[in-house]
């Protein structure tokens, strides 16, 4: 018997096998299921269904709107916070950063429960403001994911750029708009992807806050409960396509930044 060679590069084999079995194969099965019916025949029915049904298109539109507004609100709150933490004249910046990031490590369902109690206290009945509550819930959940990447980029921008701008006659606002903001674009983009994509799929936040409108994730959840694997697969594939497009667009524009 030939001795098995345990050289360093052969160590990649188990990982490769695992990833092919449990990442590539499941997605391939989803693709197959989304274009077949329950008899195993190839059909485009699921696909056409999604793009002709008013309900599913409405869901797609609603999740894009929820995700866009959540992302915008997160960005408006997170940028000043990240900027102050990175460049502000305050003490104990690293400890403060930790405090802003810490909620990431507390189970999100428990945090949403806490938020729900507060919202119930103020609004008496959560059903009156489902959309607003959803945005508040998602912002509450995803905010650290927007703060961290923006902070990471800002902390690495040398203060000399800002000072040079000021020396050359720009006022503080101009220097910020023309120097710091463009230089922090990479952080904004990665923060936006980290908030936008989960905001389209995390339907538990809507469920817990009594918003009965569906987002894309809820469709998968409801097909799962109805044992409808073919339509569920189709929604998954459509979501995956959206995710790939958003990711490619964002890494693309980041690469362009690097080249400049």
């Amino acid at each position: 018997m030939k001795k098995i060679n345990i050289s360093r590069k052969n160590l990649s084999i188990p990982y490769m096998i695992y990833m092919v079995c449990f990442v590539v194969a499941p997605l391939a099965v989803l693709l197959f299921y989304s274009f077949t019916d329950s008899d195993g025949k190839i059909t485009f029915h699921n696909f056409i269904n999604f793009f002709t049904d008013g309900n599913t298109l409405g869901t797609l539109l609603y999740s894009v709107v929820v995700a866009l507004i959540t992302t915008l609100v997160c960005l408006i709150i997170a940028y000043p916070v990240a900027f102050i933490l990175a460049k502000g004249h305050i003490k104990n910046k690293t400890i403060l950063l930790m405090i802003f990031i810490m909620p990431m490590w507390i189970n999100f369902t428990l945090r949403i429960t806490a938020l729900k109690e507060i919202l119930t206290f103020f609004e008496k009945n959560l059903a009156y403001f489902p959309f607003v509550n959803t945005i508040i819930g998602m912002t509450y959940d995803f905010l650290p994911f927007m703060i961290l990447p923006i902070y990471t980029v800002l902390i690495n921008i040398d203060d000399c750029y800002m000072e040079a701008g000021l020396d050359l006659g720009a006022d503080k606002v101009q220097a910020f708009m023309k120097i710091i903001l463009p230089m922090s674009k990479a952080g904004i983009i990665s923060g936006v992807t980290m908030v936008f994509l989960p905001a389209m799929t995390n339907y538990v936040i809507l469920d817990m806050l009594y918003n009965s409108t569906y987002i894309m994730g809820s469709l998968i959840g409801s097909y799962f409960s109805a044992y409808d694997w073919h339509n569920g697969s189709m929604i998954s594939i459509i979501l995956l396509t959206i995710i790939i497009i958003v990711t490619v667009l964002s890494t693309d524009s980041n690469h362009k930044e690097e080249r400049l």
């Binding site: 499941p26 989803l30 992807t193 799929t201 998968i220 799962f224 995710i243």
Partner: peptide, 11 residues
């Protein structure tokens, strides 16, 4: 990068 919903559903 994939949504957890999709990963879970596919497995």
């Amino acid at each position: 990068i994939n949504a957890d919903v999709v990963t879970g559903f596919s497995i």
